[in-house]
Design a protein around this nucleic acid. Structure first.
Lengths: 142, 142
DNA sequence: CCTTGCCTTGACGTCCGCGTCAAGGCTTAC
DNA sequence: GTAAGCCTTGACGCGGACGTCAAGGCAAGG
């Protein structure tokens, strides 16, 4: 099949395939007129790349999987190098999730603090015998 | 103070400050010779931006906080628009953490599956009366 | 013959938050 | 005078994974 069909079958674009080829991840035979030609194994290879991309793997991180498939292994992750990438990714994900959770907690705190501060001001403003009005809310004109 | 001192006191660079200014987040008075001049309130403003940046906020997301401070409020999050940004960020963080957790689970599954497949092959290869050797491991030469 | 729809290479644009270099001006110290 | 150490604007670079446009070739249908 040609590049357009392969792209369509993998749910991506021809530009992407040419980009992968430029990065050495995908190779293509050529027909007489210079058109790229692919077979079913290329589709499997491409699907492997796309799956990992969807997982957030960088292109370079998919390389061991690609080479593993190219070497004739049944799965892209049948090779030790691929398993190493999995493990590294798990560590990265754990670290990232941890950081994001910490940030989430801090932002949550900030929001709670800011809202309670706002509520205090609102309550003060609403209570007739309350404290002095705060300048930023605009003083009541007598 | 001039730009170099402000940058140092905020733990950032002059380039960054000029960039913020170009984005309309930071403003500067000028001395006779064209040098930028800042005061303490600019430092507070800058610290607000930096704190949010450290949280992973985009520059545009810091704008409401900056404008809130500029309007004379005691904190950058004393304004409703800032609280909205907090809430939006919390939602984004929750969504992102959720996605990353899902990916982590899938990658973990893939790793476990690939490792067990590898172990099965290794066990097969190690057992004398086991199954036929698999081609991808290289057949034993008689 | 002409259009349509594939394909080719090459090259620049995108997003973001700056880093880095260039070329020059001001001020202060020696 | 001159060297050091600030400052100015302008402009290009980066990383990642492509999008998009340009200019043209090839094949098939009417």
């Amino acid at each position: 099949m040609r590049i357009g069909e392969l792209a369509a079958r993998a749910g991506t674009t021809t530009r992407t395939l040419r980009y992968y080829e430029s990065r050495g991840l995908l190779s293509a035979r050529r027909t007489g007129n210079g058109y790229r030609t692919y077979d079913e194994s290329d589709l499997l290879l491409l699907r492997q790349i796309r799956t990992l991309q969807d997982f957030g793997f960088g292109l370079e991180e998919t390389r061991p999987f690609v080479e593993c498939l190219r070497a004739g292994h049944p799965e892209g992750d049948s090779c030790p190098a691929s398993l190493q990438v999995y493990r590294r990714k798990l560590d990265e994900l754990d670290a990232l999730i941890g950081e994001l959770s910490a940030v989430r907690a801090k932002v949550g705190e900030q929001l709670a603090r800011a809202e309670s501060a706002r509520d205090v001001l609102a309550a003060d403003a609403g209570v007739p015998g309350g404290p002095e009005p705060v300048c930023e809310l605009g003083g009541e004109q007598p």
